[in-house]
Nucleic acid binder design. Structure first.
Lengths: 234, 234
DNA sequence: GAGTGGTCTAGACCACCTG
DNA sequence: AGGTGGTCTAGACCACTCA
């Protein structure tokens, strides 16, 4: 065991990852405890703790009290997706952003939407359909349902100048979200809205947003598929 | 300022998030320094540090030495995508997994692939096309290029029993990856491979994988779009 | 029950950055 | 130049969970 004199939780992390990479430790193995590692690296237990804790947070090792720390068996690949505000995404590409409201209705939603939002039978929602342009080309079609019980103040907002996307982000921080991604074919209606051909590929993002167990909003975002690519680097 | 007696970095995090949610602190505001917060919460600076550091890691605040800690202006939504091994994904759905190799060739790649992998002019690669079935229905088509300079041992692997996906995951841990997601239309070839119609929607994932600045592999994964949905909960 | 990780403390030194 | 965050220490107590 070579004792490290320069202690740093980053160096300890890299050293442990090196021992896994070189197959010195194999998946399923239990590695030494924090106290032992602190002696080995010549540092305090807190420093080891931060190193190993961060490895556990990235899924590389698994920790349990008394049982110790084990190399994870088959860590899934995970990727952190940045899902930017549409306007920023368009402006970052150097294009001019424009927003257009297509429809804004307060209503009791159809059953499918009611189920998605987990709403009571007569709860009203705000249904908004709108379009985001990049350099006057349709970039994203947004079809959104907002829970009026949870976000009552939006009845006073016309959404003619600001998109519901940005409006909600300002007023409902720290909400939890679930995202689904899929590919679909454009039907005649969406094709005419996005100015593409019927049967073209659409990249579709569905998002549901909660806070404190209440559903706030559900939205379906459709992008012309060929031109859109969502990137993530892990 | 109410002094907290029960100090915990989690309580401090929640308290700070509460002050942002209630608009006590607005985006762009500078919040008190660690020492001041430690006094306010009646705890040590390390505890405050962990709370605020984790908020910075989630993008809720931004920190700079000397300048202090500010509430982030417009935190992007981010989602952690789990990208499982195909086999596990299929088995989790209760379906029977089967793997089939379609083609395996060692070659000097065409220019487009060479550029994607950042390879020298005469570097050889291994080109693999294969198929993953769920209950005998084509589930995912995999078109992969492996850098033979970086992963020479794979010339000895036939990839008839094990998919390159799993083979590489076992041997190249901790690689960095970049993912792209898009929607495409199936051409005649892919349609016949996946047993769908030409012009059907495809959900396409492109992944490039590095380690230590060397590209290891690039892969394109195609799913029949209607049947596929990638989920993530943040 | 005992061993492990989870957290906290009260100090310290340093690196970075802004005013 | 000085204030801020970034990290580290050497202790401590506690909570969980396995045997």
């Amino acid at each position: 065991m070579s004792k490290m004199r320069i202690s740093s939780f980053l160096k300890i992390k890299q050293d442990i990852m090196g021992k896994i990479k070189s197959r010195h430790w194999l998946p399923g193995d239990t590695i030494p405890g924090e106290e032992a590692l602190a002696v080995e690296y010549g540092c305090s237990r807190m420093t080891v703790n931060r190193a190993v804790r961060e490895l556990a947070e990235s899924g590389i090792v698994e920790r349990r009290r008394k049982a110790g720390t084990r190399i994870a068996l088959q860590p899934d690949r995970s990727a952190k997706l940045q899902i930017p505000v549409v306007r920023k995404e368009i402006e970052r590409r150097g294009a001019v952003y424009r927003y257009a409201l297509l429809e804004r209705v307060e209503m009791v939603p159809p059953d499918g939407i009611r189920a998605k939002l987990s709403l009571g039978p007569k709860t009203k929602v705000l249904h908004i359909r709108c379009l985001h342009f990049a350099d006057e080309t349709p970039y994203q079609y947004e079809d959104r349902w907002i829970n009026l019980e949870r976000v009552p103040t939006c009845v006073d907002e016309k959404f003619e100048k600001i998109s519901p996307n940005e409006w909600l982000l300002e007023r409902e921080p720290f909400s939890e979200a679930e995202h689904g991604f899929s590919a679909q074919l454009a039907d005649a209606e969406i094709a005419s809205i996005l100015n593409i051909k019927k049967g073209d590929a659409l990249f579709v993002v569905e998002r549901r947003t909660w806070q404190d167990d209440d559903t706030i909003t559900a939205v379906q975002l459709s992008y012309p598929g060929a031109s859109y690519k969502m990137l993530s680097r892990s």
